[in-house]
Amino acid sequence: MSERINILKTYKIYIGGSFPRTESGRFYNPMNAKKESLGNICLSSRKDFRNAVVAARKAFGDWSDRTAFNRSQILYRMAEVLEGRREQFIAELMQQDSSRKDAEKEVNLSIDRLVYFAGWCDKYQQIFSSVNPVASSHFNFSALEPTGVVAIVANKDSSLLGLVSYMAPIIAGGNSCVILASENKPLCSISFAEVLNASDLPGGVVNILTGKKSELLSQIGSHMDVNAVCYTDGIKDELIQLKEASIDNLKRIKSYMYDLTTVEVENPYIINDFQEVKTTWHPIEVIGAAKASY
């Protein structure tokens, strides 16, 4: 009796809720420590990145208009779906050099992190907003609005947890995003796209590319329709490259060095970093009672 032939998975990228291969037709072969190929992974092009930004921009309006409660439900749904696929992610992490114990821990943390940020969706506004006691007859309040389209350069050393830990606060806050997955450990990122796709998350809110930072970083920095970048690899030259490329549209560049295996990354200040403060004034009683009257 011959053994059953396995079905091998073709890893794709995730743009606008669909799973295309890269438009460039290119691929690369990341290896694990045992020098086994992880597959013919899409080597995403600049054009793929542009397409992903278009999808993210299109999705932004609807996603940021959703109620906080609805966003919260969808993040929680992701955790539910991921929980049901634990074994798949553990296997992929082990294929990418994790021990079984570490792989289990990473999946557990990823699920818990989604739950954690699901809970923040309808709470951070109350922490960071204010009614401001101005010295004139106006009602004045400051509230948060999502910055817009955020590019996330996912942590290079972590296939799943790095991606989830920053994606969650960014979309919890109503942003849409384009994620460049870990270059050498890309498997979980694409499988995670399948989780997203099964979680009622509207297409385009999260887009995931695989490929090389060396090719895409300057494009991420300079793209005029990306409002912010989340960078977590702590490599000084890369951060400088991002900062220098981002000047033309004054992107918000945020760099984090959290230890993702601890709870220190679990805080609402990351959500806040990808928000803009909007302050609204309205007169009380007499409309147009401006002090500087002509």
Binding site: N132, V134, N140, E145, K278, T279, W281, H282, G288
Partner: peptide
């Protein structure tokens, strides 16, 4: 998409009111 919105007023400033 703006940091300060004045409704039925304009150019009001106050130290307690965030500007940017």
């Amino acid at each position: 998409r703006a940091g300060i919105v004045w409704a039925n007023t304009y150019n009001q400033f106050d130290p307690t009111s965030p500007f940017g």
